[in-house]
Nucleic acid binder design. Structure first.
Lengths: 199, 199, 199, 199
DNA sequence: CATGAATGAGACTTCATTCAT
DNA sequence: TATGAATGAAGTCTCATTCAT
C-alpha cells in the first residue's frame, strides 16, 4: 500500500471528476491521469463510487475544520466573515474539489456526505438567526427558508469565484455577509453601516 | 405521430429524470412509465439526450413567459415579487421539472439551455442592481457577485419548497426579496419597512 | 390490388436496392421512394426478401427471353454476338436491375435465382464449347473453367458499361466474343480475322 | 494486447464473414468462434466494420506481394502465368479470405480497399496490353474493356476453384492466360501453340 | 505491490413487421 | 385498399470489475 500511489489516484480522481462529472468520468481516465495500471486502482479503492465518497469525506472533514464556533464574547459578525473567508480560501486552493462538491449531482446516495454537511450548515445558520432574533438584532423571519437562501447564495458565489483570476477573499466574504445582513438596499439616512461596525 | 403518445413519454421522462437523475435514468424506465414499446420512444425522440433537451427547452420557454419586464411607472419591487412568485408557482406545479432543472448536473453540454437561462437571469438581476445604484436606492456593490448570490438563494429556496406540503407562494416570494433588499438585520429604529412599502 | 401501386413499389425497390444494396436498403427508403404508406408495402409483398426475389425473378425471366437458341444452320458466332448484345442492351435499359444482379451479394439463399441462372449460362457456354471441340473448331480445354471465365468476363464488362455514357452495344458484344475466341494475341500472319468472318 | 487473442479473432472473423457474409455475420458469431468474451472483441477492434477492413487490408497487402513486376528480359508470358499462379495459390491457402474478397459486396465504402486493388489490377492489365500493342504482338482493342474482362474471368474462375478438391494451380494459370491470349478458337493450321512457346 | 488482458452484464438503438382505423 | 402508429426482437457497443501472472 504505497501512500504515494494512493495519493496520485486521489489527485487524478479530483481532476477527472471535476472536469467530467462523476458519471462521465471513467476509471480509464483516472488511471491514465494517475499513470498506474488498471488493477492498481482496485488495490486502493473498492470501486469508482468508493473513491468519490472518500474524496467527499476528505472535503467535509477539511471544511468542518475551517468552520470555527462563534465566541459570543468577540465580535460575532467578524467571526462569521472569517469562517466564510476560510471556506472560500479552501475552495480556491482546491478548485477541483470545490467544483465536484458544488455540482449538485442528482445522486442523493452518492453525495450523501455532502448533503448532510450542507444540512448542518443550514442548521448552523438557522441557529444563529434564532439567536439574533432572541437578541433583538435580527428581524422575525422564516429561518429555514432564509438559512437555505444564504447557503444557496454562498454556493453559487463560490462556484463563480472558481473562474476568476484574482480573488480578494476577505472582500468577498464581507460582501456575502453584508448581503445577508443588510441586503442591497441603501440605508435611507447616512448612518453608519458596514457589517462588523458597531457590534 | 400521436400527440398523446408524445405527451406520455414527456411526462414519463419528467418523472424518471426527476427521480433518478439523467444518468441513472434508463430508456427502459421511461417507456415502462409511459406504457409504450421500446421502438415507440425512438419514433418521437432521437435519443435519451434528445428528450432531456426537449424537456429543458420547454421549461426555459415556460419560465421566460413567467418573467415579465418591470414597468418603471408601477411599483417595481412589487413586480419583482410577482415575477418570483410566478416562478415559484411554476416550480410547484411542475415539481419534477423543477427538480431536474435545479439539480445542477455536471454536464455542461446537456444542460446548456438551462445554464444559459440562468446566465440571463443573473444578467437581469445585475441590470436591476445597477439601475438601483444609479437611482441612489441600492448601495454600491459587486453586482456580478450579488447577482449570483441572489440567484443561488432563489434556487436553493425553491428546491427546498418542493418538499413542503403547503406553500404560501406570495409570502415566500416576499421573504426572498426582503432578504435580498434588507437582509436579515433588524432596522435599528422603528421605522416602517416591508419591501414594497412607500412606492 | 392496384397494379399501379405495385409497379411503383417495384420501381422504387429497384432504385433503392441498386443504390444501397439489399442489406443497407430499408423498407422506409422504398416506401418513401414509391410514395406509399408503410402498411401498403405489406399489402403487395410479404417481406423485404420477397420483393427482392420478385425483382430477381423478373430479371431472370427477361434475360432468358433475350437469349435465343443457336440455329446451327446460320452463322453461330453471329448469333452468339447477338445474344450478348441483347443482354447488354437489357443491362443498359435497366441499369438498376443490372447493378443488383451483378453485385454478387454474399447471400446464396437470397440470390439463388440469379446464381441458378448464371449456372445455366455456364452450362450453355460449356455445351457450345464441347460442340465446337467436336466440330474441330475449338481447342481442347477445361470447359468448366473456361465457361466460368467467359461468364466472369461478361459480368465484369457489363458492370463497367453501366457507368459509361454512350455504348456501342454491337461493338462491345463483338469485342467480348472476339476475346473469348481469339484472345488478345495478334495473328502471326496477315490473314483475315474478325469473329464472324468465314462462317 | 495479446497477439494470440487478436489472431484468434481475425481467424474467427475470416470464417464467419466467409460463411455468412458481412451483413449476416454478427459479433456474437465471431466471439463464439474465437472463444472470447464480448468485451474482448472491442479491445482489439473498434467495430465489426473495422475488423473487416483490417482483414481486407491484410489480403491486399499479401496479394500485392505475390504480384511481381514483369522483367522484359525474361519470358513475359511465363512471368504472368506465375503471377496468376501465386494468386491462385493464395486463394486456395486462404479460402475464407478469397470468398470474402470475391463476393462482390454491395458496399463500396466497406470494400474500398479491395475495389481499389482491383482497379490497380485492371490498370496493370491495360498497361501490359498497350505494351503488347506497341510491340505488335497484341491486336488493337478496347484495352479498358478487355482489361476488365480478363479480371472478371480471373475472379470467377478462382471463385469456382474454391470448391474443387484438387487443383493444379499451374495448369489453371496457364489455361487462364491461354484464354486471354489465344481464346478458345483452334488455330486453323497445325502450327505451334501454347502460351509460352517459342520465347 | 503492480500489471493489463479478459470479462459480461446491461445500456442504447434500429428496423422489419403488425394491426387497428 | 390504404394508412401510419406501434411493436419488440435482435443487434452493437461500453465500461466497471476481476484475476492470473
Amino acid at each position: 500500500m504505497s501512500v504515494q500511489t494512493r495519493g496520485r489516484l486521489i489527485e487524478a480522481a479530483k481532476r477527472v471528476f471535476s472536469e467530467k462529472g462523476y458519471h462521465n468520468a471513467q476509471i480509464a481516465h483516472i488511471i491514465d491521469e494517475a499513470g498506474v495500471a488498471r488493477g492498481t486502482f482496485y488495490l486502493y479503492f473498492k470501486s469508482k463510487e468508493e473513491i468519490l465518497k472518500e474524496l467527499l469525506r476528505e472535503v467535509v472533514e477539511e471544511l468542518k475544520e475551517r468552520i470555527r464556533v462563534i465566541d459570543i464574547n468577540e465580535d460575532p459578525v467578524h467571526q462569521v466573515v472569517e469562517n466564510v473567508e476560510r471556506i472560500i480560501e479552501f475552495a480556491l486552493e482546491e478548485k477541483e474539489l470545490a467544483r465536484i462538491v458544488l455540482q449538485r449531482n442528482s445522486d442523493p446516495e452518492l453525495f450523501k456526505v455532502i448533503d448532510e454537511f450542507f444540512e448542518e450548515v443550514v442548521g448552523l445558520i438557522e441557529h444563529s438567526l434564532r439567536l439574533g432574533i432572541d437578541m433583538g438584532i435580527v428581524r422575525e423571519c422564516d429561518t429555514s427558508l432564509i438559512g437555505r437562501g444564504i447557503l444557496g447564495a454562498l454556493k453559487e458565489i463560490i462556484l463563480s469565484l472558481l473562474d476568476r483570476e484574482e480573488v480578494d477573499t476577505y472582500a468577498v466574504a464581507k460582501e456575502i455577509i453584508e448581503l445577508g445582513m443588510r441586503g442591497v438596499w441603501k440605508p435611507a439616512g447616512g448612518e453608519s453601516h458596514g457589517v462588523s461596525s458597531g457590534v
